[in-house]
Design a protein around this nucleic acid. Structure first.
Lengths: 143, 143
DNA sequence: ATTACTGCAAAGCCTTTGCAAGCCC
DNA sequence: GGGCTTGCAAAGGCTTTGCAGTAAT
């Protein structure tokens, strides 16, 4: 939360209730939520918050690199876009193709690759999203 | 194309014209296209192909792991989902946050990480999508 | 006090659903 | 020939837009 306040200040945006609540919802849910689901969760915390504010907040957060849109498991294609938090510009997870469970992990060891790519393409890389698709522990046992 | 025919045969699906054309469009466009854009491109090749068939084909291809939905650059949030080809279950690219250019690359060196994760979480990983966000060569010079 | 942000409601677009005809195997 | 696949059209849901009031700095 403190991070969000600083980020908004630094970029010249105001720290408002909708923005505060959207951030809280994102932090407190392990699952990945769609824009609509985030609005529903925010509504439970404060029913006076409008849908619009949530959508616009998500756009702003994405612009700021605070969150990042991603897609759901293959079973839920086009079932809406979900948003993931980008801690330090990074996000990594494993998605079970069978049950849809999401396992997030921290270490990615991509520094070397980033360096190589920046040299090869003369570009600057600020963050990344890494998604693995597979079958989780539980589903392997059942199968 | 031959790959698609084999894949469909192996999984028990028929090789039809809509499926053939969707595959061709995906292969011939470097940019990432949304469902609607793919339909438009298919329509130019054969106007008798219906929208529905394209949507259902995309769902099927995704189920088969032939393609994978992803999201656009931050500027086009919620502007629809785009589809990327999953060659050998892998896909990697760099997206320029400024102009939206997409640079695809091949080597990712993630084998070691895959191995570590499979051991740690007792899971099996079949493929991945890796997206880097940054600023491309051209945009760096202009700025 | 100024400026940006919020909230409401209607409009808009893409996507989904169901059924008869056609094509692939 | 059998059965999956297609195509059409209407229904459905999420998202976008514009303006007046409100809250943050």
């Amino acid at each position: 939360m403190a991070n969000l306040i600083q980020l908004l200040h630094k970029t010249g945006y105001k720290y408002t209730k909708p923005r505060q609540l959207v951030s809280e919802v994102l932090e407190s849910h392990a699952e990945h939520l769609s824009a609509n689901e985030i609005w529903e969760a925010v509504s439970q915390l404060d029913p006076t918050i409008g849908r619009m504010s949530v959508y616009r907040t998500l756009d702003l957060f994405t612009q700021l690199g605070y969150i990042r849109p991603a897609t759901r498991n293959a079973a839920d294609i086009r079932n809406g876009i979900v948003y993931v938090m980008m801690h330090d510009g990074h996000h990594h997870h494993i998605i079970c193709q069978n049950c849809g469970q999401v396992i997030e992990f921290e270490d990615c060891n991509l520094d070397k690759l980033v360096e190589t790519l920046e040299k090869k393409y003369n570009c600057r890389i600020g963050g990344h999203l890494l998604e693995f698709f597979g079958v989780c522990d539980k589903c392997l046992r059942v199968a």
